[in-house]
Every structure is written in C-alpha cells, then in structure tokens.
Design a protein around this nucleic acid. Sequence first.
DNA 1: CTTACGGCCTGGGTGC
DNA 2: TGCACCCAGGCCGTAA
Length: 283
Amino acid sequence: MPELPEVETIARGLRASLPGRRILNVRLGKTDFIEDPAAIERDVPGMRLSAIRRHGKFLLLDLQSPAGSTGNSSLLIHLGMTGRLVVCDPNAPVPPHTHVFFTLDDGRELRYTDVRRFGRMRILKTDVLQDRLGSLGLDPLEISETDFISLLKARHAQIKALLLDQHVLRGIGNIYADESLWRARIHPRRLGASLKPEELRRLYRAVRDVLHEAIEARGSSIADYVDSEGNLGGFQRRHRVYQREGKKCFRCGAPIRRAIVAGRSSHFCPRCQRAPRSRPTNR
DNA sequence: CTTACGGCCTGGGTGC
DNA sequence: TGCACCCAGGCCGTAA
C-alpha cells in the first residue's frame, strides 16, 4: 500500500532517470480511473518530463511543452492500494492490469499497473495544480514539533483518524499510523486533545523516525508494492504491529490486538498502548 | 468548521 | 471444482 515512504521511494527512482526525457507516445487500456483520458492522450505526447515530485501520497510528473506553445502541466498520480509505476524495457512482459504505457525517447517505457484500479490519474495545468493540492495538510517530514503539537492538541477526533486525515498531515496511511502509535505508546482511540505534551512529542518523534526508517528500507511491500524498478521494499520486516495480530509485542510480549478504529483495521499492543477509560461512542 | 460514518471502487483470497 | 462473500485503504458525500 503506497503511503509516504513508498511514494517517496518511487519518486526518487523516477527522479534518477526521467527528468529530461520526452514522452513520445501514450497508450491506454482501461481508463475508468483516469479523470480525463482524452486529455492525456491529446496533451502528453511530445511533452518533456522536467521534474518528479511527491506531495503526500501523490506523485507529480511535471511536463514541459517543447516550444512553450501551451502552458506547462503536471501528471498527477495517486497509486491507491495497488498502483505501480515502473520504468522498463518495452519488450519486458506486460503484467496483467497494466493500463497506461508512456513511450520514452530513450527507448524505455513507463508503465502504470493497478490490479484494483483504486488509483487515480489526471493531467492538470500548472496554475490549477495549487488549488488541487493546496487543501492537504503539511508534510509530516517537514512540519516542526511546535506546529505538530498545536495541530493535534486542538482536535477532539481519535488520534488514529487524525493521523490518517490527509488534510491534517499528508502522506500517512494505515501502516505508518499504526507503527507510529505503537512506537509512541499511544492507543489509536485516544483523542488528540487528550494527549499530554510529552505524548505529543513522542508521537512527533515516532512518526518521523518510522517514516525516515521506512524510506531508508525503500518502503513496505505487503501485497503489491514495488519501486520504480520493480523491486520489493524491506520495511515490512521491521513492522512491529501492522498485520501482527496475536503475535508478541516486541516491547512487552503481550499479544498484539487488532480492532476497528476510525473505520480502519488497527493494530496495537493492549499493554503498551493503554486504552482511554471511556470510549467516545456516546449518542 | 469539526467529527463520525457509510458507501464505493475492484478482484484476490478464503471457506464452504 | 465452483461460488458467494469478505476485505483491503483512500476518499468523498452526508448528517449532526
């Protein structure tokens, strides 16, 4: 499941080989996950890739028109759960569920594969890009501790929901929310406003450490994730709670539990991460 | 504005 | 062997 570390790994991989390349041709398979497929077929061929960026879980491929004829634009890609963006030889076998092919001017091909098609793709003019991405929260790797704390302590939602909310912080998904809360020893059902300053500082630290370590390990490969060269990540081997239900807590040995919190499957240690006394299921 | 929740996208895996 | 169904995670719409 591509979250911040996986998208960052892909972005770095693409950044190493795509900028400067021209896209010669576009081929589309199924297009129901593309906002305006005709626009991509019409506007992308001939464009030069100028930069690769990550914004939360979004990947941005900046496109420069050759003669400056039309304005610049960006290809906005969200990988959803199972999206893969891989650069390869055009003669390499085409995996099932591959729906977008970009032919590059160096003889390679950029392919988008997505079993579930929960991903999204669209092309946007540079000037409207800001409107589209501006509503997202700060990047958890860029936010200061002070801002992080003031952001969360004013909120009465469950901390798990807040970490998953892309308008609060951008880039954290279910895996890294659970791993961060375990490290910080905070129960996912705690409310943001109930967290003590020390707990908020621990959480800030935990989120950043987990994300940095996951990037270093090139992401978590649970089911479908691979980087831009098709290689698996390694951070799944360092997960402490995610998908470890019933296994022993690495810290205290108690069996890891799984429960639905904020509508999501959540993994935590019932001993290290103390549940709040009254649950907020009032009505 | 904030929060909670249900539904939707799709197909692999599971269990009968 | 076949089939129904559960479920993954992000996101959006709705309601209070």
